[in-house]
Design a protein around this nucleic acid. Structure first.
Length: 505
DNA sequence: ATGTTC
């Protein structure tokens, strides 16, 4: 295989307004690298998995510059990774992975982001598109009514502080014990829906206040709930294990996170970590990378509060699942178990976890404990991994990649290559290619609605502005993102889904 | 992403 090392200088803006140039090499058909330059403070190289079109887009903003900045973190391991959907974020790029040493590294709230455990859940049904079409409008309306959506929404549940603390420590287990689901739902969530390393007492009262009234709500921005049909199956065996057996089978896909609670946890701990920065004496090129050393009180408290926000987000998706199942029951007149509305999987996209990984390019067998920061990245563990639920252990972990509103979404399959090449991770979505403001100017609400309608997609939305901001044209091509993951071999194609109904915040 | 500017 020819892996030309043709080097090109790319310009990337940094926070300091100077234009930095990074020597970018192509090291494979879908792999690029910026070698470590210790004189500039880099402690590791950057690896970018991308095709030519997607990396060209990354070069027009701060994505790659931010990834280079992340290589300055103390204890950063092996390489900082940018996935094909990479774009600018707070300090760290979104669509990125960074692993830091468990003992000598740092933990950074910006490496997880504001929407802690923003993630995706896929539910299957035994219904086909033909059966759902006649009732689609009613179904979408029924879901829209029973799952509050939009900015600042409340009203699904109103928790006492005791109940909220149980949500924050037990996650989905609390929901199932409280009647919002069935026992086997737990088996199809990452971490079984409960991050044990959590402590509600490390979550501020302000965050709890926001969380108590928002559980079971969808939110806004790129969060959505869609009725999908199976458009194509690429891996019959894996699809079958995931409960997907035929084209036009109907599924439900939801994309939401920890709402105002997670946002507040991130804000609180960014402030705490920044205020303590002088104590840690860590020099970084961007204050948004604010971090605390492993084992410090600040890092430990953040991890425990983040764990609570993870539990909140998983529970949020469980409560929404309960209400979606109820909506289906009302519309189709049979129980959700008769409709076979089983959870396919629930996976986090914004998370920091302790995992064991190979950290040496030359010695893949040697592993050590690291803090894996996945920010806009999906875990993609292969078959045989003990973290993969028993039901899927012989095939591998389902990877859920939502597209933008009205476009395809993907189910991929975690592969062994991800462990060596991307700390067991792959891409998480389409990624914006246009600012919200530009999207509003380019795609008025009415044109987006009509475009969806002409393609047979029913839409109900809390906000017209939100629909314009999330217009399909404002996003990158999710099929290209899935292609890169597949071709690199870190997670391979199983099922392509296309929407027939959309509920938007 | 977000009680969309503490």
């Amino acid at each position: 295989m020819s892996s030309s090392r043709a080097s090109s200088e790319i310009a990337t803006r940094t926070n300091s307004r100077t234009v930095e140039k990074y020597p970018l090499s192509r090291v494979g058909p879908f792999e690029f690298r910026i070698e470590r330059d210790a004189r500039k403070g880099m402690r590791a190289p950057v690896t970018i998995y991308s095709n030519d079109a997607l990396i060209a887009k990354m070069q027009t903003d701060r994505t790659i510059g931010q990834a280079v900045n992340v290589t300055h973190l103390p204890g950063v391991q092996k390489h900082v990774i940018v996935l094909p959907d990479g774009h600018e974020g707070y300090g760290f790029p979104i669509g990125g992975v960074a692993a830091t040493d468990f003992e000598t590294g740092v933990i950074s709230p910006g490496g997880v982001g504001y929407d802690i455990n923003c993630g995706v859940r896929l539910i299957r049904t035994h219904l086909t598109e033909k059966e759902v079409r006649p009732k689609l409008k009613e179904l979408i309306h029924e879901i829209f009514r029973s799952v509050p959506s939009g900015l600042g929404n409340t009203g699904a549940l109103n928790l006492s502080s005791g109940q909220l603390d149980l949500v924050l420590s037990e996650g989905v287990k609390w929901a199932v014990d409280s009647g919002y689901g069935v026992q086997k739902d737990l088996e199809f969530c990452e971490e079984n829906g409960t991050m044990k390393h959590s402590d509600p007492s490390k979550v501020s009262n302000e965050a709890k206040k926001r969380g108590a009234v928002s559980l079971g709500t969808l939110g806004s921005g790129n969060h959505f709930l869609e009725i999908e049909t199976v458009n194509n199956i690429f891996d019959d065996e894996a699809a079958k294990v995931f409960g997907i057996s035929e084209r036009n089978q109907v599924c439900v896909l939801m994309h939401t996170g920890s709402r105002g609670l997670g946002h507040q946890v991130c804000s609180d701990y960014l402030r705490i970590v920044e205020a303590a920065a002088h104590i840690f004496n860590i020099s970084l090129p961007d204050r948004e990378l604010a971090c605390a050393p492993a084992g410090s009180r600040e890092a430990e408290n953040y991890r425990l509060a983040m764990g609570s926000a993870l539990n909140y987000a998983w529970t949020n998706r469980q409560i929404i699942t309960h209400n979606v199942r109820r909506a289906f029951e009302r519309v189709f007149g049979s129980s959700f178990s008769d409709l076979e509305m089983d959870l396919v999987y629930d996976v986090a996209h914004n998370i920091c976890k302790v995992e064991e990984h190979s950290v040496d390019f030359d010695n893949p067998a040697k592993k050590k404990k690291v803090f894996v920061h996945r920010k806009g990245a999906t875990r993609a563990f292969p078959k045989g991994n003990p973290a993969v639920t028993l039901q899927y252990r012989n095939v591998g972990q389902p990877v859920l990649i939502p597209g933008s509103m009205g476009t395809a979404s993907w189910v991929l399959l975690g592969q062994e290559a991800s462990m060596d090449r991307s700390f067991g991770s792959t891409a998480h979505g389409a990624g914006r290619n246009m600012s919200r403001g530009a999207a509003i100017r380019t795609y008025p609400y009415e044109s987006v609605r009509q475009d969806l309608q002409s393609r047979g997609i029913i839409l109900e939305a809390a906000s017209k502005k939100g629909v314009a901001e999330e217009a399909p044209g404002a996003y990158k091509d999710v099929d290209a993102v899935a292609d890169v993951s597949h071709n690199v071999g870190i997670a391979t194609k199983v099922v392509r889904l296309t929407p027939i109904g959309v509920v938007k915040g």
